[in-house]
Design a protein around this nucleic acid. Structure first.
Lengths: 194, 194
DNA sequence: AAAAAAAAATGACCGTGGTCATAAATGACT
DNA sequence: AGTCATTTATGACCACGGTCATTTTTTTTT
């Protein structure tokens, strides 16, 4: 059967073409027809592969998955909190490279995740790898916490996303890192002093 | 000048009609034309009052502002953390009454807030009232914290929103309250034990 | 009260996302 | 190779959000 590989090829072609156009001209300024024309296919074909234009954004997101995992794997030295901060700092830098597009991706991911327990969403994947990191830290003693690793991961990741989303257009890397640092300080120590 | 009051009337009429239709049939299933027809005005008129259909969602959001402030004012007894939890619990109940619509409102609010420092957005307003509550608590001694009230407010509010957004369609009030409780425990005590 | 100016309403019109009946392509079977 | 079944591609078509030149209404000026 030669059909499957060919479908995949077409799908990849659409994704690659679309991402490039989105980065060039901005998501809103790219029409589905434009994408398909550049791919040499008919407009209708696009919708055989993606139910909505917005679904492309989820694919843009998942195209970053490998890169994200690599970053998570990279940070293995030093105190846990510092490691996490460096890790998020790297993510932040990556995000800022295409902030306009990735903001849409993030919002779309949030939108598609909510209302359904879908474990394969980009957001959940990311959360899981942070959770895993925390669990390892708990196991090897570098983190002592009465809280569930899973809950901590949710908290950390939401605050990270919140930082990205609240980033105003003029915000630079350093401002955002500082923002994130403050939030992390709060949750790391807790709000109320003992 | 009699123009201003009349404009306001029309705007209110549109908002009321739209909200009702949204709640009846769901945002996506209501067309602008339908709204205007029910208002007895032309389609084009709608866009004299709202630049986009989605802007209606922000107005839906702001229509809850008074109610929200009232809830904040209501909880004045007991330990701070409990008060906050009750407060958020009330919000949550309110949210669940029209979860479908309010999820869209929330997402739209997030979307419109991000990228611009707009202090009048619904989200910012809410955050500010929580911040104020925390500051009062710090002043009268019921909260002792080394962290900025503002930062704490951001953290609390983001986690609340995250809870709302991650609510799957089948989630009930109790499940969500429990979810929220766990997150609040984490940030209240801090992730790492002393 | 008439004329001029300003503001607001209108609906024909357009672009784009998305549908769907039909056509083309592919693979299985004889 | 020829027939049939199934999958995939196609583009005319539609619905809806949004625009804009024109008309209608309201306010100001004389």
């Amino acid at each position: 059967m030669l059909r499957e590989p060919r479908k995949k090829k077409t799908k990849e072609l659409i994704v690659r073409t679309a991402i490039q156009l989105f980065k060039e001209k901005g998501y809103e300024n790219v029409t589905v027809e434009e994408i398909t024309q550049l791919c040499g296919i008919a407009k209708g074909t696009f919708f055989n592969y993606f139910p909505k234009k917005e679904h492309m954004l989820l694919y843009v997101g998942s195209s970053y998955n490998d890169l994200l995992n690599e970053i998570v794997r990279k940070h293995r030295e030093g105190p846990l909190k510092d490691r996490l901060m460096e890790l998020f700092h790297d993510f932040l830098r990556l995000y800022l490279k295409h902030a306009e597009l990735l903001r849409l991706v993030l919002i779309e991911s949030i939108q598609s995740t909510s209302g359904s327990t879908d474990d394969t969403s980009n957001l959940t994947l990311f959360q899981q790898s942070i959770r895993q990191l925390l669990e390892e830290a708990k196991d090897n003693g570098s983190l002592r916490s009465r809280h569930d690793a899973s809950d901590c991961a949710i908290v950390l990741v939401s605050l990270f996303y919140q930082t990205l989303l609240s980033a105003s257009a003029d915000a630079d890397e350093h401002k955002l890192t500082a923002d994130l640092q403050k939030k992390f300080d709060v949750i790391w120590d807790g709000i109320a002093d003992a």
